[in-house]
Each structure stands twice: as structure tokens, then as C-alpha cells.
Simulated scan of single mutants.
Amino acid sequence: MKKLLLLSSLALLASCSARESEKAESENILENFSFSVDTLIVDVGEEIFMPGAYDMFELSGDGDRLFTYFEPELEVHEIDLNAIKLLKRHKFEKDGPNMIPIYLNYMQNLSETELFFASSVQAGIFKKSGEKVKSISLKPEDYAGLGPDFPFSLGNSIVVSPDQNKVLTLPNQILGTAEGLAILDIEDMRGKFQSLPALEITKNFRVLTRRGNGGASLGESQRAKLVNGLVIIDSGATSDTYILDLKNDSLQLLTFPHQLVPKAKTGEFPSEVDSNERLREVTNGIYRQISFSQFFWDDGNQIYFRMGRMNRELNEALKKYTADVYLFAYDEEFNLIGETVVEGLDFMPTGGFTKGNKLYVEWVVDENPAFIEYTLNF
């Protein structure tokens, strides 16, 4: 197995290094891959609430507990993942000095006592007991280096660094794809902006329809996620991926020699349409091509993995979308070490979280919150 080739190593925001992964033909850890599926019902005791309203999932430091946002009551539910049992409901306030952001989009578990919350316009650090610890500005004019003429919103795909000194976002225009990476130093209130040219292709695979003063936008997007201590910035439209190493202050571009699927989507699609029907038609065409999921970390096998999907079609008989699904595995240095078609799975699980070699996706069973548990046997 050849190591990732480091072509250059320059300081973050001055330039970006690139690494290319190569996989030997005979080395494929997924050659005998199999998986099993189980459904785990969360024991909520006598609690009664909307079972399908969980959103956003964050693990505790030891990986044994899950924190998930329950929007109807502005609560974070803490779940024991060994017993699959609701442990505690952390309650937050909708107004006053301890008000959490309205229309919450992002949550991050920072420590045993603190959580980060953010919407597209507000952000802050809160104690799990409900008190606000710190407000974090998402206004460009508050950051030297960006200023009032910065043309993009900072409230997209927001991540807090582990030391809580920096906030990373993927600035965008409303309903649009990301324009690059912003690094906000919330200690000295300085901001830096870095373009991400390898992910600009994403713009070609997102379509907008306007509705009065608003609109809807569908298609692929870029994502930033803290995974195993690294900020991984990727897109559903391409396998190219950026890795932001905050400890070493470096940004690297990774490319991968996938053999089973194309490297990226191709072709031309309209960027704006005039009806919902045309919106669905165009996005169906976009989704028939390759789409890549986010990266996950398997701490048991010490590997990263992600999934892919092609040929998505509406199955009229089943009244659901089906597709060809793929699994890709990478070692700790992001070498591609395996890829396979996932037989027996006709949709790509998205979102969710991992614990060991298991992938969990939110589900509902009768009146109870639940998780579909995929055990991945490498």
C-alpha cells in the first residue's frame, strides 16, 4: 500500500497542499464485506413526546452516550448507547439571557458540561444545565480581515475547534453552495477566508426555484464536520476532500483513485427553474449520478469510511427511491484501502453517527424513537 503522496506543505491560508491516494489492485479490505441490520428501540420510560423529532447527533467523549436535539421542547436528550435508554432531558430556554439560537441547525458536544449551538445567524456555547456561557458572532463586520464588505453569510456548516478558540464555517449566499472556508478566531476577533477550488464543482449540481420573497434549493452541497479530531470538508458531488488539521495549521486536498464509481458528477444542469415539478425533474437527474456521503470514523478498526450512491430511481411499486450503494474505506492517513458494491442495500444511509463498527440512523417504531443499527463486518 503506497502512502499518500505529499506534493507540497505550505502554511494554511497561504496555500493548500495536495495528497493523492493510491490503492494496490490486490489490496481491498472490503473484498469479503458483509453487514447486518438491527432495530434498537430507545427506552424512554414514562416520557411521552414526538418520537421522530430527534435531530443532530453528538457522542460523549467516551462514546457511550448520545446527545440529540429535540426541537419541539428545545431540549437535548442524553441517551445511554449501551442500554439504549433515555438518561436525561437537558432543557433550554427560548427567550431571555439564556435563549438558545432560533431555528437551530448545528450542535456540537464540547465537553461533559458544555454544548455549542448555532443557527444561520446566531451561535453560542451553553452549559448542559441551560446557562449561556458565551455568545459567538456570525457577523462578518465583527471580524478584522473580513469586515462589512464580506459578501457571504457565515452561518453555514459551522464547526468549533476542540480548543474552542476558533469557529470554522463554509460561507455561502442564501440557498447557495459554499464559496470557501472561513476561519474565525473568536479570541482576537479576526477572520480569514480560503477558497476551496476542488469543491467549486458543487455549484453545477444545485438548483433553485423562487417562491415570492423566498425559494427552495435542492441538490448537492459542501459539508464541514469534526471527525476524529480533524475537520473534514467534502461534497456530495465529488470524491475530492479537504482535511483541516488544526493542530498543525494545515489544509490538504485529498484525491482518491476510486475504481467502482466516477470521481465526480458531470454534465450541465440549470441553476434555476420556474416550478416545483421542474425542480424535481432536474434534481432527479442530478441524483442519478454519483453522490458521496459524509465521512465516518470507525474507532474499533481505526479506519474512516463513507458511502456512495448511483442510479437513484423512484420505485413505483415500493413508493420509494432505490439506488446502487457503495462503501469506501480509508486508513488513518486517508489511503483508499477498500471499495465495494453493498449488496442487499438499495438506499444510502445518511447522517447518523458511528460507534465502533456500527452505523446508527434515526428511526421510529410505533410511538417510540429508535435507531437502525448497521453492523459493518470488514
Rank of each mutant, 00 (worst) to 15 (best):
residue 305 F to G: 05
residue 327 L to M: 14
residue 259 Q to K: 11
residue 237 A to C: 01
residue 262 P to H: 13
residue 320 K to I: 02
residue 331 D to G: 10
residue 333 E to V: 03
residue 303 I to P: 01
residue 262 P to C: 10
residue 293 S to N: 07
residue 223 R to Y: 12
residue 289 Q to N: 01
residue 318 L to H: 03
residue 334 F to G: 12
residue 292 F to A: 04
residue 247 K to F: 13
residue 240 D to H: 05
residue 304 Y to A: 01
residue 315 N to G: 06
residue 251 L to G: 01
residue 292 F to V: 14
residue 287 Y to N: 04
residue 260 L to G: 01
residue 238 T to E: 03
residue 317 A to W: 09
residue 317 A to K: 11
residue 288 R to I: 08
residue 265 K to P: 01
residue 286 I to G: 04
residue 249 D to T: 11
residue 236 G to P: 03
residue 297 W to D: 10
residue 331 D to W: 03
residue 334 F to C: 08
residue 279 L to A: 08
residue 292 F to R: 02
residue 236 G to V: 04
residue 237 A to M: 01
residue 306 R to D: 04
residue 272 E to H: 05
residue 261 V to C: 14
residue 334 F to I: 12
residue 262 P to W: 07
residue 245 D to A: 00
residue 283 T to L: 07
residue 242 Y to A: 02
residue 240 D to S: 05
residue 311 N to V: 07
residue 253 L to Q: 08
residue 318 L to Y: 09
residue 302 Q to G: 05
residue 302 Q to T: 01
residue 314 L to E: 02
residue 307 M to D: 10
residue 267 G to V: 14
residue 231 V to K: 01
residue 322 T to F: 14
residue 256 F to C: 02
residue 222 Q to S: 03
residue 303 I to G: 00
residue 303 I to R: 00
residue 222 Q to Y: 07
residue 275 S to A: 02
residue 303 I to C: 09
residue 314 L to C: 00
residue 281 E to S: 08
residue 290 I to R: 03
residue 290 I to P: 08
residue 268 E to G: 00
residue 290 I to C: 04
residue 252 Q to A: 14
residue 330 Y to D: 00
residue 266 T to L: 11
residue 266 T to A: 13
residue 236 G to E: 10
residue 331 D to Y: 07
residue 278 R to G: 00
residue 271 S to I: 14
residue 238 T to H: 06
residue 219 G to D: 09
residue 267 G to D: 06
residue 220 E to V: 13
residue 320 K to L: 09
residue 246 L to P: 05
residue 332 E to W: 07
residue 296 F to A: 01
residue 277 E to S: 07
residue 257 P to Y: 05
residue 274 D to I: 11
residue 264 A to I: 12
residue 226 L to R: 00
residue 258 H to T: 15
residue 296 F to V: 06
residue 283 T to M: 02
residue 236 G to T: 07
residue 294 Q to D: 15
residue 258 H to K: 04
residue 272 E to I: 09
residue 308 G to M: 05
residue 330 Y to G: 03
residue 273 V to E: 05
residue 303 I to H: 00
residue 319 K to S: 11
residue 300 G to H: 09
residue 254 L to W: 07
residue 249 D to M: 12
residue 284 N to G: 08
residue 234 D to H: 02
residue 245 D to Q: 11
residue 249 D to Y: 08
residue 226 L to V: 09
residue 266 T to M: 06
residue 268 E to V: 12
residue 219 G to Q: 13
residue 274 D to G: 02
residue 224 A to F: 14
residue 239 S to I: 15
residue 237 A to G: 04
residue 263 K to D: 08
residue 227 V to K: 05
residue 245 D to F: 10
residue 282 V to D: 01
residue 251 L to A: 06
residue 245 D to I: 07
residue 248 N to Y: 11
residue 294 Q to W: 10
residue 329 A to Q: 07
residue 237 A to K: 01
residue 305 F to V: 15
residue 237 A to T: 01
residue 247 K to V: 14
residue 226 L to W: 03
residue 262 P to E: 13
residue 248 N to K: 15
residue 266 T to G: 05
residue 244 L to I: 01
